[in-house]
Design a binder for these strands. Structure first.
Length: 532
DNA sequence: GCCGTTTTCGGCCCGACTGTTTTCAGTCG
């Protein structure tokens, strides 16, 4: 496998192994290159063929050579050497909560402990007692973390995190004196998966907010200081809360939204202007510049405000500087929801309510998908002549499956990839007009990997077939990197929030579209789309 | 290992928090 994702994985692994060796700056250098490669909208092989690997941020001479080795042989000798030197379990130990490279290395070299399991045995055998730096509290914590490491997943799908986030924000607003509240981090950037939630608040009574946060149902307190508190929810999601002074809110929001690479770039711009940006203020010498809003932070470095979804150091700083930031898709740009499944039990009253919600949400067209032939006919009859919104009845079937005979042709076709790879030939399958492909994962819990999504977007460019974005990027819908690849190639997307009721304001599918630098002109169901 | 409209060498974010250590090291974000 010589995909971008596989190359990135190799560099991430090199970084982890170098961490164990105690290298100070190399791991970050390899990680930076890995992140750049992950967000590349082109195949690494194509970039190498043009001899432009060095243009990838974070790729210099040494990493360019390793990329070429990888593309040629599928392996990197340097990585092989490191693997031979360091047991894989030591990296796994480093991953355990509260353990880092120093500790993992110490256990390995001083105690001969080479894996999390071996560490557990060593603790039970009392071999950690008396080791310098490891008191009873720390040992107990490690023991707990070892138990948790096996069961808790690290990152979870965006949608799942959104449900938790909404709940927590609503509760804090209701039960504590918060003035401003915002979720920062990768959730705000609408990454496909979220590792933790970073909640920022301002309040005149911080203690009360911290208390309310600690009292959230099912919460376990991980740590609590005067300005910062961390809990773990019942299902294992870590949530950080930071209480800030209002004059620092913009600086903190910018700082904790990231991404890391974006912040490195903004800080370097600040340095060029004789400024420093930290999580509290923009500082010129001793002077604190206004830092209560993000716009002020960006203004101080001569930039317009940059939408959080594209803060990934993938050209947004340059675009902001040149005044060419894209006008990203907004929820209000969507004039149609084209992916709404109708339940067999939905009678005329329920359908009318759906239509009303859609109209209330500002939609001009609602696309309904029945589950059976009979329902199809019933819906077509019901939909006839309706307007504001007008109703279209479509059909969903696995990609490649034959379309059943209908008395009236479906208005649109959702073709489910269902975990399959795209056909090798773009034109192997004649597509009905009004077709697009979605459901890339094999089931709701299994995401399609970046390789498969990239393959579908390559296919879609050639086949001139739109692909679907949903609230579960990488799972049922396209991820942002592949979506950007698709529209850069001239392709289009259908943005489906999969609902018209209260869940619609979440706009997670729109978030993914924004992350992919998508403007409304590439969106089939947005106002400005030139038409099929 | 990467990077450079102040540097091709010398930087690379740094503050909060915890446990243990009596002044700090490690982790985390």
């Amino acid at each position: 496998m010589k995909s971008n994702a596989a190359a990135a994985a190799a560099f991430h692994e090199i970084a982890d192994l170098l961490d164990v060796l105690g290298e100070k700056f190399k791991p970050e250098a390899y990680r930076r290159a890995a992140r750049s490669i992950e967000s590349l909208t082109e195949d690494l092989g194509a970039v190498a063929a043009r001899d432009q690997l060095r243009e990838i941020p974070g790729v210099g001479q040494a990493i360019e050579e390793k990329i070429r080795e990888f593309l040629r042989d599928g392996t990197i000798p340097y990585l092989e050497k490191l693997r031979a030197e360091i047991p894989a379990g030591v990296v796994a130990m480093m991953r355990v909560e509260g353990l880092g490279p120093k500790t993992a290395r110490k256990f390995w070299t001083d105690l001969g402990v080479e894996s999390p399991n071996a560490l557990l045995e060593a603790i039970d055998a009392g071999r950690l007692a008396g080791v310098k730096g490891f008191g009873p509290v720390k040992i107990a914590k490690i023991r707990t973390a070892l138990g948790a490491a096996a069961s808790s997943q690290s990152r979870r799908p965006l949608l799942q995190a959104a449900l938790v986030a909404e709940q927590i924000v609503a509760t804090l607003k209701e039960r504590s004196p918060v003035t401003q509240i915002e979720i920062a981090g990768s959730f705000r950037r609408r990454r496909e998966t979220v590792g933790d939630l970073d909640i920022l608040v301002t309040s005149s009574e911080p203690e009360k907010v911290l208390d309310a946060f600690a009292a959230l149902e099912g919460a376990t307190i991980v740590l609590r200081g005067p300005t910062k508190e961390t809990i773990r929810t019942r299902d294992g999601l870590q949530v950080d809360l930071r209480v800030l002074a209002p004059e620092s809110f913009g600086a903190a929001l910018q700082y904790f939204t990231g991404s890391k690479d974006h912040n490195v770039a903004t800080r370097s711009l600040a340095r060029d202007r004789g400024l420093k940006i930290n999580e509290y203020f923009v500082v010129r010498g001793e002077e604190r510049l206004p830092s209560s809003t993000e716009a002020e932070i960006y203004r101080s470095i001569g930039l317009p405000w940059i939408p959080p979804e594209i803060r990934e150091a993938r050209g947004e700083i340059e675009a902001a500087r040149a005044g060419t930031l894209p006008v990203l898709l907004e929820p209000g740009d969507l004039v149609a929801e084209l992916h709404l499944h109708v339940r067999p039990s939905d009678g005329a009253a329920e359908l009318a309510a759906l239509a009303r919600s859609a109209g209330d949400a500002g939609l001009r067209t609602l696309g309904l998908i029945p589950g059976s032939h009979e329902e199809f006919d019933r819906l077509v009859a019901w939909a006839h002549g309706r307007s504001s919104p007008s109703i279209r009845v479509g059909w969903e079937r696995p990609y490649g499956a034959e379309l059943p005979k209908f008395s009236t042709a479906p208005a649109f076709h959702v073709l489910s990839a269902n975990g399959l790879e795209p056909p090798a030939q773009a034109d192997s399958e004649p597509l009905d007009p009004g077709s697009w492909v979605g459901h890339f994962g094999s089931d709701p819990d299994t995401p399609a990997g970046p390789e498969r999504l990239a393959a579908w977007s390559r296919w879609a460019v050639a086949a001139k077939c739109p692909l679907e974005l949903t609230p579960s990027p990488g799972y049922d819908g396209l991820d942002a990197v592949s979506a950007r690849r698709l529209v850069e190639g001239g392709g289009a997307v259908v943005v489906s929030e999969l609902g018209v009721g209260p869940e619609r304001p979440r706009a997670l599918a729109v978030g993914t579209a924004r992350r992919a630098w998508i403007t409304r002109s590439s969106v089939l169901n947005a106002a400005a789309w030139p038409g099929p």
